[in-house]
Each structure stands twice: as C-alpha cells, then as structure tokens.
C-alpha cells in the first residue's frame, strides 16, 4: 500500500482541463518520478496533493486515510512536506533560521518534549550541504542553494513523504550528482519521495518508478527502463530532446 496516493484527480482552470483523472502514488523508502513536458500539470498535481489546490474530482489518500478535505496546514502536520518550483524561501531569514523555523513549527504542533532543535537543524544543514552559507540570509545566496534550503526546511518537519518540484535546477553537474546521492540517502531512511524533475538523467538514475504526465493525463507508469522504451513517452516527451 503506497503511503501517498492521488486517485483520479481532475482540475479545471476556466475551460482548460489541467488534470484529467490523474493517479499517482509514492511508497515509503522509494523515489517516484513524475515527469512530463512543460505545462503537463506536474506542479498542479503537487498543489492538489499538498492541499493548495482543491481538485474538482478524485481523492487524495495518505496512510490509508482519505485526506481530500484536510486543509494544507494539517497535511503538513500529518508528515507531508514539499518544495516549490518557483522558490518559496523565507528571504529575510538566514539559511539556518529557515530550517530552525520549520523545526520550531513542527515542535509546536507535535507538542513533543523539549529537544535540542539547534543540534537537529545543524545535522540537517550538514546533511544537505549548506554549512558554508548557514548564516547568510537566503535572499543573498544563489538559486541552487535556495532550493537546497527549501529541501532542508522540508526535512526539518520530519516528513514521511516529500514532494520535490524541480529541486536540482540551478545546480551544476557535480552538485546534481551529490544531490542524487542525497535523495538516495533520504529514501534509505524510509522517506517517500515524489520527484518532479527536468534533469532526465537524474530521474532515470535515482527513481524506482516513474509516472509520465502529458496534457494533464498520465500516459505511462513504469520503471526507468520501461519508460525509456515506451513509444508514447518517446513521442510526447523524450523525443523532444
């Protein structure tokens, strides 16, 4: 049973059907890819999963519970975290504070015992590789590092599932490779990862399964090998390259 499931969700903007009966799922300890050309509906799908966009049809299931009517902030508390394609960092805070504020938020609603949040945040900063810029304000660091800050912030809520929206754009090749390793490490720790990414090499390298979205519908689901071979995928997406 996957931890997070979208069941036949549909979203319409005016007359435009952004998502039509889309089903995706993410399992614990696995990295699941969600790929597709620009405008295919990937970010809309993420917005539905995280509760920022109410769907016109379909259900969202988390840990066997129907959370379709659960507001976004409560989904966060259930253990769902995400990053954004257009970066949403706390620009006036430092990188460390970005992570700390997330840990503090989690600590507040989880009403857990008093723990050393600073140490916890420092561990995350080291894990993600932001040590050098930890004390800089986020609005003064490069885009790639801002994206990593978003990831670090998401990790501070101790999520069971993370939705990553193009996390590697803005990273150079070496950084991308290190980022892939980081994702694998997180998956090993049992986190379910749903990955939207334009870097196809990265997706093929780290994902266990891949969903392909085109014009708001899922046209293929499978392992990286299967997806590479799929004719419709080649036509709709990979053929472009």
């Amino acid at each position: 049973m996957p931890l997070l499931q979208a069941e036949e969700i549909s979203v319409t903007f005016g007359g435009h059907r952004a998502l039509v009966d889309v089903s995706v799922d993410a399992e614990e300890g696995r990295i699941t890819g969600l790929i597709g050309p620009n405008g295919a509906g990937k970010t809309t799908c993420f917005n539905v999963l995280s509760g920022l966009q109410p769907p016109q049809g379909g259900r969202v299931i988390f840990d066997s519970q129907d959370i379709s009517a659960v507001p976004a902030y409560k989904r966060g508390r259930l253990g769902m975290a995400r990053t954004f394609q257009r970066i949403e960092v706390f620009g006036s805070l430092t990188v460390f504070e970005n992570v700390l504020v997330a840990a503090e938020i989690r600590h507040r609603w989880s009403r857990g015992e008093e723990i050393d949040l600073d140490a916890e945040c420092n561990d995350i900063i080291d894990l993600v590789g932001l040590r050098k810029v930890a004390d800089q304000r986020v609005d003064s660091i490069p885009t790639g590092l801002s994206r990593l800050t978003e990831l670090a912030r998401a990790l501070a809520t101790k999520p069971r599932v993370i939705l990553l929206d193009e996390p590697s754009s803005g990273l150079d090749d070496d950084e991308s490779e290190a980022f892939g390793d980081l994702l694998l490490t997180l998956a090993k720790r049992g986190v379910a990862i749903l990955l939207v990414e334009h870097d196809i090499d990265l997706v093929m390298q780290v994902c266990d399964r891949i969903h392909v979205l085109d014009f708001g519908t899922i046209i293929a689901v499978g392992t990286p090998v299967e997806i590479r071979k799929d004719k419709r995928v080649q036509k709709a997406y990979l053929g472009e390259d």
Binding site: S50, G51, L52, A72, Y73, K74, R75, G76, R77, M80, A81, R82, F84, E88, V89, F90, G91, S92, L93, N98, V101, A102, I105, R106, W109, E150, R153, A154, T157
Partner: peptide
Amino acid sequence: SAMRDSPAACTTLGV
C-alpha cells in the same frame, strides 16, 4: 517573518 515571506511555504510546514 516566515509567514510574511512565504505564506504558502508556511502552510505546507503545518502553520
């Protein structure tokens, strides 16, 4: 401050 900078991110963190 976080809420001012990004309400959307705060929401997904559980605020």
